[in-house]
Design a protein around this nucleic acid. Structure first.
Lengths: 244, 244, 244, 244
DNA sequence: AATGAATGAGCGTTCATTCAT
DNA sequence: GATGAATGAACGCTCATTCAT
């Protein structure tokens, strides 16, 4: 019955610790910054022990990616299911995205590292499919909301512009912004104080640009976000150390 | 005065060759794909000779980065100096950005790869400053146009929104979009055909969202771009194999 | 008295299984091909259990060697006890040798592999003695027949030539031949078709060279062998898939 | 002109030293006994230096094999070209074989190790061909002498016995004998004193068995060998520390 | 008796860097 | 200025062995 002996628990905990350490290393030093040796010695265990948990370095990196990737998708799903008009739900997605990136600030570096370094060669096709599927789900969720907005007459896309194009715009902007924040340590020096506020604003402005009703001037989506974060993501919000 | 002996010239040329090779290697194999050995042997010189040009691997990478950033900065500057209303000049910046990423995909890709790895520890503060300065210039150029637009009453930013915030929006969107295009082979699979067209449109929509005059419906910026690319970047345009 | 509880029996059986697996591994991958890990997992037991049977890897290998040598010694003994003139009994030894190498090619191959690697340092003197004893018994058995032949006046060795020298000749020839067959895929390419027939013939020719009566021309030892294999090794013969 | 700078010479010498050490290690510890680490430290150089000479462990082992393999073939060729009747020339081959094995006592272990351990997988097809070709040449040389003997009516092979079968007998016997001597440290304990004398005698006896004229009793081939070794292999004979 | 997690020395290999020539 | 041999730390990884449970 009791399958979780103290030993098993300890092992589980160590696995978490390994990933924690690994994440720190990858984040601070990139792919090469992750050394099996260093993890082992910093954990106070032997090299071999690491290999009882992960059968190669790439597996660790992939585990790191999947760990957070799934969280984001789940957050997107929750936001999409919120009961309100499409633009608010879309705003909820924005809240989810920001919350996610602030809770897991390293995710984007991980994502890029995994994509840019030749890790894929050493992984199975299934893994690749898993990541891609997660991506497609996220895109699909947002595209669904866009289509809702269109169906309800809140937004009309010009000829030749697909809902995916709009999604692509939002995705690009957030992906790019978070990526810039994560990799460029000079954001504020470049005059971009409060980058998160800027992102929030810019995404709303983009929707305004598309003429999505109600416009930002008709409804205070910035205030709305404060409500959303508490309603949809109470736990995540609690984890957030800094103010929203 | 300028005594460029044949020998000096040969050395210069080799330096260029080194960087060319290095870029190819980084692009195809990431940071680890760059091997001093391979460069030397492909160049037909000895390992030691490389060290007469660059005192360590990181210096090479940094040189690559600077090279890349310089090209873009120069293109941005050209676009910014174009004689037209601010929004058109801003559109010119967009043209420059797209042209850059399409003409020099290796530069773009390399830039991303390099940012992920921690080369910074081994480099001097001055180098870091140099890169940062280049970045600031790019941001400054765009921010300058935004300020022009504001000064001429073409756009009014809400309270608390700095010109840099708008720049950040544009930068994020393009950076993110190009990054997605470059690394994710799933762009079209996700339903995003013609991603470059989408980017062009989305940036204009963002400006529309800010109420920047003239709006997209008042002036056909898509057609404008075709003019701009020919006028500002005739040579680059000629190099572009595919249609604009 | 002999209390073989089911448990004890199970343990015995497992020991056999371990050796079977181990032999397969050594044969297919050499000394390094033998992995305690693989044995354990293929057996469905844990690594530690293996150590209840053998205190180290070398012990397993030694056990394999002893097993192999015991089989051959037993076959030699049976041949030596056959009731006939010495040269026929010697021919029976040849039959035994060939049968052994053809029935248990893995045993033969393993024997050679094991001899090459230095397992001896990690083993006790007793073990070494055991193996050596087995070898001496085999030599002794054959030497005994030679002495019988001498005593019965069937063969006379020149001055300075011991019976062991003749044994050495037979042993060398068969050992060398089987070894060449087993490892060199070039036997037939070298023009040596039917190598086993050649060995049979050459050993008889050697005895002829020693003038051992009756000579090959006086008695058809090739036909004799067909009889011997059926009479002395009926079971082994039955196992032999190919024709004799 | 002077292409052998002192440095180059030193490098050459080290290569020799590496192979010497490697041979010792392989001989005493088999494939696993050869450690790149150990070579380096025992040579007083770094691990990396070894890799300037040989690009992997297997290359070293193969180099060891080829080193001696070629020597043997050359010795066989010299013996075969000796001007005398076939049986004497064949005896010369025997002298060559013995001389070779006594000068390079480890060759047979090497040969077996190379064949038994899975080294071939990591080597090129050409290497394999080279080794096989050398083998075939040796066989061919001996088979040629046998055919000479047949042509001159000195020996008549029974129906169904090819010259290669006789070669196979000689080859087996020497290969086996030397292999036993090399791998079994118990030869003398088994009652086989003077194994080399036994081999010499047994090969002659085998030829006698085939009825090859002149027989051993008609011509003292043992005395002949003493002449041959001095005439055909004066230098090798000088290197031989022990008495012939 | 059985487990299997932990060990840690060892492996072969790579490669940025140095420096005597 | 050019060479390239030498370096040696670091890498990812394996596996026989131990031992607390």
């Amino acid at each position: 019955m009791n399958t979780l002996t103290p030993k098993k628990i300890a092992i589980r905990e160590r696995e978490t610790r390994i990933l924690e350490l690994a994440r720190r290393m990858v984040v601070s030093g990139g792919y090469n910054g992750l050394g099996l040796d260093s993890i082992a010695s910093e954990l106070g265990v032997s090299r071999g022990t690491i290999y009882n948990h992960f059968k190669c370095k790439e597996e660790i990196i992939l585990a790191l990616l999947v760990e957070t990737m799934d969280i984001r998708r789940e957050m997107f799903q929750r936001a999409a299911m919120y009961q309100d008009i499409p633009r608010v739900r879309l705003t909820g997605i924005g809240v989810a995205a920001e919350l996610f990136v602030r809770l897991y600030p390293d995710h984007f570096r991980m994502e890029q590292i995994v994509r840019l370094d030749s890790i894929w060669d050493k992984t199975t096709e299934e893994r690749r499919a898993l990541v891609k599927s997660c991506q497609m789900q996220c895109v699909g969720i947002v595209a669904g909301i866009v289509r809702d907005g269109m169906a309800q007459g809140h937004v009309t896309l010009p000829d030749g512009v697909t809902p995916e194009a709009l999604v692509f715009g939002l995705w690009s902007m957030t992906e790019g912004a978070y990526s810039i924040i994560a990799t460029s340590d000079a954001v504020t020096e470049l005059g971009m104080s409060e980058p998160f506020l800027s992102i929030r604003h810019n995404t709303q402005v983009l929707l305004d640009g598309y003429g999505w009703k109600p416009l930002l001037e008709e409804r205070d989506f910035h205030a709305e976000m404060e409500v959303l974060v508490r309603k949809i993501f109470p736990e995540e919000f609690a984890q957030l150390k800094q103010v929203w």
